[in-house]
Amino acid sequence: MKVGLFIPCYIDQFYPQVGIATLQLLQKLGCEVEFPQGQTCCGQPMANSGYEHLTHQCNSLFIKNFADYDYIVGPSGSCVLHIKDHLHDPAAEPQAEKIRQRIYELTEFLTDVLKVTSLPARFPCKVGLHQSCHGQRGLGLAQMSELVAAPFSKPEQLLRMVEGVELVPLDRADECCGFGGTFCVAEEAVSVKMGKDRVADHVKHGAEVITGTDVSCLMHMEGILRRQHAGVKVMHIAEILNQYTDEQANS
């Protein structure tokens, strides 16, 4: 199984450790993983700002980079959702369609394709799980609190396989953190207020680490936590699921 690793631009630039954890985790689970070097951005920041019509070059580039893989996996529900919903190229529509069908967010790839039932991971810590909206409501990574339907959560399913993880309950299980792409600067006041409230819910319930499937939300919450000197850390879920390997490598 040949997996193309899709590392969104801001992870590449600001959170390389998330890319590394994703790569190592997939390799540990037996995948043949490649990181196509020519990748930049999925085009979501432009599209969500109303400039989807400017993303065709990003689309062509994405197709060029990822057309040849059995699966494309990325550690960001938001970017994956954008590709799934909006990747089109009149010059290469069959390839675009294949990518739309074969692209997965990391946790759903683990639960649905690799069908992981156990992980050699250990992370003794109180963890708060932030359900990023695009992953949850867009990709269906977890049941949504608004619906009258049976609960499930793919990220939670995986975190429960990690020895020592204690998931803390939250007052609002799936409220948005307020990042929202360019919303975070265009609507600074509301964005920050949403982030502060989200963070407070985790802190109130004793979380030592806030995790999630989207680095963008985590970056926003981390910015608030650091300004508050809260002492609570954020980690992408890949970093927790890959934790044991890291400790072994370091010792």
Partner: peptide
């Protein structure tokens, strides 16, 4: 910078993931 008004900026790492990947793959 509206981000910085009430939030810290991410700490920029010395190398990007792609730079790391080139060296370590």
């Amino acid at each position: 910078n509206p981000w910085y008004k009430q939030r810290e900026m991410p700490v920029p790492p010395a190398q990007s993931f792609s730079e790391w990947y080139k060296k370590n793959k």
